[in-house]
Amino acid sequence: MYAQMVTSEATQDDPDKLAAFQARIDAGDKIEPKDWMPEGYRKTLIRQIGQHAHSEIVGQLPEGNWITRAPTLERKAILLAKVQDEAGHGLYLYGAAETLGVSRDELTEMLLDGRMKYSSIFNYPTLTWADMGAVGWLVDGAAIMNQVPLQRTSYGPYSRAMIRICKEESFHQRQGYHIMMKMAQGTPAQKKMAQDALNRFWYPSLMMFGPSDTDSVHSAQSMKWKIKMNTNDELRQKFVDQTVPQAQYLGLSVPDETLRWNDEKGGYDFAEPDWSEFYDVIKGNGPCNTERLAARNKAWDDGAWVREGLMAHAEKKRAARMAAE
């Protein structure tokens, strides 16, 4: 899940308007950019969509780390296409956020100076090729859990972006699982590598859904507005139930000795991740926080002359055209 712990904004609007707005949402209407909306709705959405977009962009880095080391030409092309899709998804989401009155550059600057966050998962390193499998299978798998229901979110541009993203992402998780399959059926060294990747990515993947929010007022408000569709625990449970049989099929073991099928609830009982680690990562102390932000800052700073150069040229052309008319 690419937006974690998004706090909702309190809203102080005319109660009649608020009630009418809520009635529209309850009726399944889509809210469009020029419609009246509560200030809290707008701000919460900017925060959530922005965080989601940032996650896509920072999320390019851990997988981008292996593009130049992919083992075959086909794997290289597939991985590159996937990481490119992430850039595209970031772009669609920034576009959705921009309809709410904030520019992409403003959002980018908030990411770069730490005012806005991105998903905790991208602060973990990718150490082996098996990590490309684990990231596709687990990280994209977890993200999809959240993104599929978000296609029905109340905000029109966000919903449309999610529809496009879900359509494009359908191959992402499958390519990850395919890598894992090849390795699990490969040499003993490859199988060990695959198990090692699962060991390292299992708990960080569970953290992607965020801590339990059954009692969170922020989540309750967001769910009422239909910008959050499920509780974190619901999605986490669904993810575990879906993923455990997939791991069994690979012949890999989930690194959780307490993992048991629970007939009564019709799902697995599983161990919670170490939430203190999660808060450390969120605070900036994850294994790769520094590198990730430094890489984004460098790309932005190094690219400034390019953006300005092309803009200056466009303005010269425009001026010349106007002079000719």
């Binding site: 962009i57 390019q60 880095l61 981008g64 593009i67 130049t68 030409l73 290289k76 092309a77 590159l80 296409a81 990481v83 490119q84 850039a87 595209g88 970031g90 772009l91 920034y94 890489a295 460098k298 790309a299 190094d302 690219g303 400034a304 390019v306 953006r307």
Partner: peptide, 25 residues
């Protein structure tokens, strides 16, 4: 492909990846 994730703008990042994908193909 070394540029992927590091280009001056998102649009350029995506365009470079297209070029790299064509060349790999």
């Amino acid at each position: 492909s070394e540029w992927c994730g590091h280009a001056p703008a998102l649009e350029e990042d995506i365009a470079l990846a297209n070029t790299a994908l064509d060349l790999i193909g």
